[in-house]
């Protein structure tokens, strides 16, 4: 029964923890964790810089980190980066908003209704197997090189992860909890809002995460195919002018902003899914 003694103190400890999570020990531990994560990249960058400086690698193909940083600074100062980044983010956001919300909508519909599942799911599963890139030429043929086709390509990619995970989330609700909802006389509405949606939330958030990632990746496809602005455009320019640093800056921006989006959704996950009792390493 040592378990029980623990239980008696736990809730009190938990509330305290939450208040002090931004100060003291916990904060230090977090800093420690992120420092461990930084060791490997820092070492690579150092070796890289050294190798470039010593002429071991051609700085034309692989500019040194210092050079990339320099070009990064220039692009920030000229305002070039901010303009293109904001355009890229807007495209990704529009594509994600359209594709993601359609995915959520159809995921819910197909999840709730067997009839909808039988009529829609087979087609969606088939469409899902068509790669992004294969559709791009067709979309450009239809909509031209304008914003519409870019947003369309992104939305198309964002749709499926959201759809599949929402659908799976609804269908994975524990059947035994439905018995409970029956015994407690939940209305149909409460059954959806108090049982199905919260139970499906982990999957839905996973859908959001994957869908955001795909939107961001789709952006590269959309912008590399032909555009006059955006981070993908910057990379293209870098290629044309043979300024490898600029390509690197573009790639870096994709990586950093993508990671930030992902971190944001994970933050939401931690906020909303803290009730989950799963292995945390």
């Amino acid at each position: 029964m040592s378990n029980r003694a623990e239980m008696l103190v736990q809730p009190i400890r938990r509330t305290k923890e939450r208040k002090s999570s931004w100060s003291g020990l916990k904060w230090k531990a977090r800093l420690n964790d992120s420092m461990i994560g930084a060791i490997l990249p820092v070492m690579i960058v150092m070796v890289w810089q050294l190798a470039g400086k010593l002429g071991l690698i051609s700085t034309f193909f692989l500019p040194t980190p210092a050079m990339i940083l320099e070009s990064f600074k220039e692009m920030i100062l000229s305002g070039e980066l901010a303009v293109n980044l904001s355009i890229s983010i807007q495209r990704a956001a529009a594509g994600f908003a359209i594709g993601g919300s359609l995915g959520l909508l159809f995921g819910l519909l197909v999840g709730f209704s067997r009839k909808a599942e039988h009529t829609l799911d087979p087609s969606f599963q088939m469409l899902r197997m068509v790669p992004h890139l294969a559709l791009a030429p067709l979309i450009i043929l239809w909509f031209g090189f304008g914003e519409t086709s870019k947003v369309f390509i992104i939305a198309n990619g964002a749709f499926f992860p959201m759809y599949i995970n929402t659908f799976a989330g609804i269908r994975s609700v524990d059947n035994r909890l439905f018995d409970v909802a029956g015994v407690l006389e939940f209305s149909r509405f409460k059954q959806i809002t108090r049982l199905i949606l919260p139970a499906a939330l982990p999957n839905i958030l996973l859908g959001v995460r994957l869908s955001l990632a795909v939107s961001w990746l789709g952006l590269v496809v959309a912008e590399l195919i032909g555009s006059q602005s955006g981070i993908g455009f910057l990379i293209n320019i870098g290629k044309q002018n043979s300024t490898t640093e600029v390509i690197f800056v573009g790639v870096l921006i994709f990586a950093i902003v993508g990671k930030l989006f992902d971190s944001f959704v994970r933050l939401l996950e931690r906020r909303w899914l803290h009730w989950r009792d799963s292995y945390k390493g």
Partner: peptide, 15 residues
């Protein structure tokens, strides 16, 4: 609700 039911496992809503 007039027939309360306690299952073998608690079956609480984990969230």
């Amino acid at each position: 609700i007039e027939k309360g039911f306690i299952f073998q496992e608690p079956r609480l809503f984990p969230w």
